[in-house]
Every structure is written in structure tokens, then in C-alpha cells.
Amino acid sequence: MIIGVPKEIKNHEYRVGLTPGSAAELIHHGHEVIVETKAGDGIGFSDKEYTQVGAKIASTAKEVFDNAQMIVKVKEPQPNECRMLREDQLLFTYLHLAPDPLQTDLLLESGCTAIAYETVTDAKGRLPLLTPMSEVAGRLSIQAGAHCLEKAQGGSGVLLGGVPGVKSAKVVVIGGGVVGLNAIRMAIGMEAHVTVLDRSLDRLRELDDYFGPKLNCIYATKDSVQKYVQEADLVVGAVLVPGAQAPKLVTKEMIKSMKKGSVVVDVAIDQGGCFETSKATTHAEPTYIVDEVVHYCVANMPGAVARTSTEALNNATLPFALALANKGYKKALNDDVHLKNGLSVHKGMLTSEPVAVALGLQYTSADEALDLGSSTAALA
């Protein structure tokens, strides 16, 4: 199979779909890898490193898309990239379609087959290709939030851990999943006063067992969310409904009740955000202020630490990329129900039910779409 790796074009996005090491592994299995020139330059992966392992360098993204059978990316394809996709092509990347009707429409129009990293599952019901970026984003949320609390950034001028004789900041994490766990670890490590809110008592018990008295574990209701949010110096939104839009758990009224100079970090912004006042920002202009509360809503947070993020992501995606390349996507999907759960678009059919519900579009199950796609190809 010919695998193409275009350079990411989203604002301040330096991650790359395949590291030289991952490219080498695919080439070792008999595949061809085409990498757009300078795709990895931003994080220290030179064209020479790719050519040394046997990859070919393309001068333009169009050359990559024109020649590749499978496109491996990091971020969702931008409109001009979607328009370069074709019916016989496989796209393997993050998609986050639920809050993005334009991308969804363009992928459906292209006729390509698109597998979303964020909805691939494992035997324990986890999201193995989302997990590494959730770990990064959770840790970054506290780093970014601490920076935003600085007075020069519009914050209240509070140091998360305080100092002897001065109280530490109050950090509230909404959601105790992978993002939340990593945010909690960082916030406790910086000696903040940390509270987590979650609707799963089992998860709260796990977190309580893990962190003990260092963490305040609270069951999430509208009343408890309002109470803890209005007292917080920093609130991290870490909720996730796989494939669907994030629920708006923090209302405009709650934001208005917060202290002047408080900070909210919406890690769920890729899925539409969990604060009513959230809107996607970029690393170039990461924050804005609503009712004197600083909002950090960068839609590709892990891109800030692109080298670490790329290596962590490749560790998780490479086995699936190999399966798709070695077997072809149909056999790979039929052999692995967890990989099949990542199928979002196939030959003009939308195969992600949460996305269909969010956007009011027709849903076709993955099995039905694959059967229909095969029948159409046979008739052609």
C-alpha cells in the first residue's frame, strides 16, 4: 500500500502523522511511504531522516494526496484537503465531526473512507487512540491555566501553589476521565487545592483511593457544579461523550458568578466545548475574556508540545495503521470490531451515529455501509 503523510496546516500545528520510526516500520512490512517536504521539520524530523528509512519526499500536499492510497494525519482535514480526497482513498486521523458540519459534508462528498482516531475502542471500552492526547491535554490544561492566571495574561495574579503564609489556588476539574486524571495529577503536584466533579460514583471512589485526602471528590449535579465553579480560581472542562458534542455543563450564569480574573480551560472544545461561553481558539490567540473570566479554548492543545504528542500518538496509532496497510481496510475492519468503531464515513455514507444525531443527518451502520460499498463496487 502507498501511505501518504501531508504536512499539517492548522494554525500552529507541528505534529506529524508518522514519525521516521513509524515510516520505517511500514516500509519494513513492504509498504511505500510518501511524506510531504518539511512535514516533520517543526519538531526536528527532517526530510533526510525520512529518506534514510526509505520514505519518498513529495514537494506538495497535492502530490501526496494524488499518489497515496491511505492518508495518515493528525488533525482533521481542512476544507482544501477534503477536496483532494477521492472515493478509493482511506483517511486515518482525528476527525471530531460532531461540531463540524462543513467537514462532514465535504468528507461525504469525497466518497472516501474515513476512520476517526477518537472513536476507535479497545476490549475494555476505552479509547486507545484518544488516550495519549488526552493525557497530554490534561497535563497541559494546568500548565496553560497557571499561565493564564498571571496578571499580565488577564488573570487574577494568583499562584496555583501559593507560598508559605498565602493560600493556594482552588482548581476544579469537571470530569474524572483520562483528561481529568492527568489534570488532577498536575494540579496536586503544583500544590493547588483540587476538587473533581463527576457523575460516576465508581470513578470518584477510584480517584479517592488513588489520591486520598489530597483530592476533594464531589458528585456532579447542577447545584454542585455551580457552587464549586463560582469559588474556583481555575476550572478545567474535561468531559467527553465519545463521538458526540460535549454537554454544556457550565452555563453563562455560572461564568458570570466567577471571581474576576478566574480562568477556564475547555479541553472538550474539539467536541464543541463544555462551557456555554466557549469558542475555539488557536495557539496564536489562545484566550479571550467573557465577564472578566479568561477563557483558554485552543482546539489542538497537544500541538503546543508537538514532539512529545507526535511520539505518544504514533505509539498508539502505528499498530492500527499497520493492520490497515497489511490487510486492506475492509479486512482490517471486519477482523477488529474496535477498529471498525472508528469508521465514520464510507463512500458517501455517515457511519457514526453520534455525529448523525448531532448534525441531523442519515446514519448507516458500519456493517451495512461496508456491504453497500462492496455491492456498489461490484456493480461498477
Rank of each mutant, 00 (worst) to 15 (best):
E8F: 10
H12L: 12
L18Q: 08
S22E: 09
V35N: 07
E36R: 04
G40L: 04
S46N: 07
D47N: 15
E49R: 04
T51G: 04
G54P: 04
A55E: 13
I57G: 06
I57F: 06
I57N: 02
E63T: 12
F65G: 05
A68N: 04
V72Y: 03
V72M: 09
P79T: 06
E81F: 03
R83F: 03
M84R: 14
Q89M: 12
H96N: 11
L102P: 00
L106A: 06
G111W: 03
A114T: 07
A123K: 15
P132V: 11
S134M: 11
Q143N: 11
C148G: 00
E150D: 06
E150M: 15
Q153P: 00
P164H: 09
K167A: 13
V173E: 01
G175L: 12
V179C: 15
M190C: 10
T195P: 00
L204Q: 05
D223A: 11
K227D: 15
G243E: 03
K252I: 09
M254R: 01
M254E: 05
M254Y: 07
M254W: 00
S257T: 03
K260E: 07
E276Q: 13
E276Y: 03
T282D: 12
Y288H: 12
V290Y: 06
V290N: 00
E292D: 14
V293G: 01
M301E: 05
P302E: 04
N315M: 11
A325V: 09
K331N: 08
A332L: 06
V337M: 12
V337P: 02
H338S: 05
L339P: 11
Y363V: 11
T376Q: 14
